[in-house]
Computed example of a mutant assay.
Amino acid sequence: MYKLEKTILAALTLGVLVTAESTAQTIKKTTKPAATVKKSTAAPVKATGSAIVLKNQMDSLSAAIGVSFANSLSSQGISNINHDILTKTINTSLKGDKAAFAPDEANAFIQSYFQKMMEEKGAVVRVEGEKFLEENKKKQGVVTTESGLQYQVIKTGEGPKPAATDKVKTHYHGTLTNGTVFDSSVDRGEPVEFPVNGVIKGWTEALQLMPVGSKWKLFIPYQLAYGERAAGPQIPAYSALVFEVELLEIVK
Rank of each mutant, 00 (worst) to 15 (best):
K252S: 14
V196D: 11
S50R: 07
P191Y: 03
P236I: 02
L149T: 04
E21G: 13
T145H: 09
A230F: 06
M58A: 15
K29I: 11
S68F: 10
V192N: 10
V16G: 04
P236M: 04
P236D: 00
G198L: 05
K137R: 11
V127G: 06
K138V: 05
T204N: 07
V67C: 08
P33D: 08
G202Y: 01
I78E: 09
L73R: 04
A51M: 09
E249R: 07
L86P: 00
K98A: 03
I90M: 10
V186D: 14
S68Q: 10
H173G: 01
K39W: 07
N107I: 05
E228F: 03
V181W: 11
L241F: 04
A102N: 12
D104T: 13
T156S: 09
I52R: 13
H173Y: 09
G198R: 07
T144L: 09
T156Y: 08
G129T: 01
Y2K: 13
K29R: 15
Q25I: 12
P221H: 02
F182P: 04
G232W: 00
I27N: 07
T156M: 12
K55R: 14
E130Q: 09
V18C: 12
N107K: 15
E21W: 09
L4G: 01
L176D: 08
T89L: 01
A11K: 05
A99N: 06
T19G: 15
N80Y: 03
V37E: 15
L54T: 03
P33N: 06
Q25Y: 07
T23R: 09
L54W: 06
Y113W: 09
T145R: 11
K6M: 11
F114H: 08
D183E: 14
E158S: 14
I52L: 14
A102K: 07
E146G: 06
L61V: 14
K131V: 07
T177E: 09
V168R: 01
S74T: 14
T31S: 12
E146I: 08
V245G: 00
I250P: 00
A237N: 05
K131Y: 09
A206P: 03
L224I: 02
S184T: 02
A206E: 00
A20E: 15
Q208M: 11
F109Q: 05
A108H: 08
K28I: 10
E5W: 02
L149G: 03
H83L: 13
G232S: 01
G227D: 04
F182A: 00
L14H: 14
T30K: 15
A108V: 07
G157C: 03
S60V: 13
N197R: 03
L133R: 02
I52A: 09
T92A: 03
Y172F: 13
D59F: 00
M1V: 10
N107H: 06
F109A: 08
V127W: 09
L17D: 08
L73N: 04
E246Y: 05
A70G: 02
A102Y: 03
S79E: 10
V18H: 08
E120Y: 08
A206W: 01
S75P: 07
V168C: 01
